[in-house]
């Protein structure tokens, strides 16, 4: 089943009189349960493609479909609603809310979805266990290591049972051990929950985990093949 598709998408950024083509006629289809890496050098368009798939941005032209729905027709609030239930994010910087504990950070998307307290508690504890952070549930981000924070971010992304999780350079700020742990957790969760993972990276150690590797260069897909 196709969870995401982009068709002939371009994204042009205009700064003053200067136009930059971040994506140039990209088409891509993502099937449910994929563990896909978007690779390519800096400026190749990986992050821009992730942002479009994540409904964080709108293409200059072309179509983006999530679960068969054309999201380019959605307004800001409708896209927020879609993100809330269907898309999880893991960012390069450890994007946790600093005033909330690990538990509360994971709980946040569930609060936005209006889940009942008992449901929230059960889901958060389940995810804390899944990422090995149950012991650190009530620590705030500044009391956690980078690897621990990223594990919490993965758990938060998974909290609403999303269709797909988009991870932008998830290991870029981690040392080798922590990077490996995070990738192994993501891989394990992909296999266990069948959640689709798409991650942008240029780290060869990360690429080895991918089932599918999509290579971008200068805003175009230049290769789409198997990773392993």
């Amino acid at each position: 089943m196709e969870v995401a598709k982009v068709t002939d998408v371009t994204r042009v950024y205009k700064v003053g009189e200067v136009e930059t083509h971040a994506l140039n006629g990209v088409s891509l289809s993502i099937e449910a349960g994929e563990f896909t890496a978007l690779v390519g050098p800096s400026g190749s368009g990986k992050t821009t493609l992730l942002q479009l798939l994540g409904c964080l941005d709108q293409p200059t032209s072309g179509k983006v479909f999530i679960n068969g729905k054309d999201v380019t027709q959605l307004n800001r609030n409708q896209r927020a609603d879609l993100r809330k239930g269907a898309i999880g994010f893991v960012f390069q910087f450890f994007a946790l809310i600093p005033t909330l504990t690990a538990y509360e950070n994971i709980e946040m998307p569930l609060l936005l979805l209006g889940k009942k307290p008992s449901e929230r508690r059960q889901r958060v504890m389940e995810l804390l266990d899944a990422v090995g952070m149950a012991e650190r549930a009530h620590h705030r981000p500044d009391q956690l290591s980078g690897g621990e924070q990223q594990r919490v971010a993965v758990a938060r992304a998974l909290a609403p049972h999303p269709l797909m999780i988009l991870a932008d350079e998830p290991t870029a700020n981690l040392d080798t051990d922590n990077g490996r742990q995070v990738m192994q957790i993501m891989q394990k969760l992909n296999q266990e929950t069948k959640t689709t993972f798409i991650f942008a990276t240029h780290d060869p150690r990360v690429i080895q985990y991918a089932q599918r590797v999509v290579t971008l260069r200068d805003g175009k897909i230049v290769d789409d093949g198997n990773g392993k």
Binding site: G54, L56, A80, L113, R156
Partner: peptide, 16 residues
């Protein structure tokens, strides 16, 4: 600003 971006990314609407 970045935190507001995170909240928006996880689905918080403008009015929230």
């Amino acid at each position: 600003t970045r935190e507001v971006g995170i909240l928006a990314a996880i689905g918080m609407k403008g009015r929230q």
